[in-house]
Write a protein that binds this DNA or RNA. Structure first.
Length: 296
DNA sequence: CTTATGACCTGCAAGC
DNA sequence: TGCTTGCAGGTCATAA
């Protein structure tokens, strides 16, 4: 469920259906799904059992559920100072599903989390296994509480402390194409291939335009459009072309109907009517209007 | 330090 | 019908 809006849809679902519950048992069905948890699958499962979930958070495309401190002998859950979190990244095909225990296992079910109540279980399903879960320490980074593995990820445009001016300054200091910069999660997070192409189309910029030649105004416009398009997508439940990208209830979003450039090869540009072209980009594809977005 | 490239996976659709 | 190729919304380690 990859880019920011889709991950945010999942975060909201987790907050609604998982927060405040106590984990009873964790089952790792595919070790690769917890490869980022260095001590291994057995440690991952053992240390999560008995922990209480607090709140679901997100930065860029990473999401995590903060955990209360371990229960004391009297059964109290104490908020830990530093704390730990159940960290998730969906990669290219990961799903977090809230399912009744009796629902049949999904073909690509990788991790199952059961709870002490009678409620539904949490399932991590991931066809391509680029995503994964980990139990990670939470630390303070630049005023934000983040899992260690997220410390290097820049603030995303939905973050109240996102500093667009600073991002544009950093962008202009780069020596690469503007699309590459937009996809660099250490510069600005949450933007992926779809919303990069959509933001570039709205700004009338070709992705290969050198960052050094981008004016401050163009940079701010680009970030503004990236923010707008992701907000609009979120309001429609995210973008999905197929059943691979769904919310915790397995439902797809509708933003694919609103795409102007991404995946629209051969379709007329909604602005000028020129057919949208597809070009190879970093083992993937870029979509743009050859008339509105002149190649440098 | 920055930047570019391939590796990591499975499954689907299109072309022969 | 089968086979091959290309493609998919991401990130990371490594090399230059």
């Amino acid at each position: 469920v990859p880019e920011l809006p889709e991950v945010e849809v999942v975060r909201r679902g987790l907050d609604a259906h998982v927060s405040g519950r106590v984990i009873s048992e964790v089952e790792v069905l595919h070790p690769r799904a917890v490869r980022r948890h260095v001590p291994g699958p057995a440690d991952f499962a053992a240390r999560l059992a008995g922990r209480k979930t607090v709140t679901a958070h997100r930065r860029g495309k990473y999401l995590w559920i903060e955990l209360a401190g371990p229960a004391t002998t009297s059964g109290e859950y104490v908020a830990a100072d530093a704390g730990e979190a159940l960290l998730a990244h969906l990669g290219m095909s990961g799903q977090m599903l809230v399912q009744p225990a009796e629902a049949p296992d999904e073909k690509h079910l990788r991790v199952r989390v059961r709870f002490t109540d009678d409620g539904p279980e949490l399932r991590f399903v991931d066809q391509r296994t680029f995503g994964g879960l980990a139990l990670d320490d939470v630390v303070l980074v630049d005023g934000a509480r983040l899992p260690v593995a997220v410390a290097h990820i820049a603030r995303d445009p939905m973050d109240p402390e996102f500093d667009a001016e600073a991002v544009v300054r950093a962008l202009r200091a780069r020596r690469t194409g503007v699309k590459r910069a937009l996809l660099d999660q250490t510069l600005v997070s949450g933007v992926g291939n779809i919303y990069a192409d959509e933001a570039l189309w709205r700004t009338r910029l070709h992705g290969e335009r050198p960052t050094a030649g981008i004016t401050r105004a163009q940079g701010l416009a680009l970030l503004g459009h990236a923010t707008d398009v992701m907000r609009e997508a979120l309001a429609q439940g995210g973008t999905s072309f197929d059943a691979l990208y769904v919310n915790v209830n397995g439902q797809s979003g509708y933003f694919d109907r609103s795409l102007n450039a991404y995946g629209q090869e051969g379709e007329p540009c909604p602005r000028c009517g020129t057919p949208i072209v597809r070009e190879p980009f970093a083992n993937r594809s870029s979509f743009s209007c050859p008339r509105c977005q002149k190649r440098p």
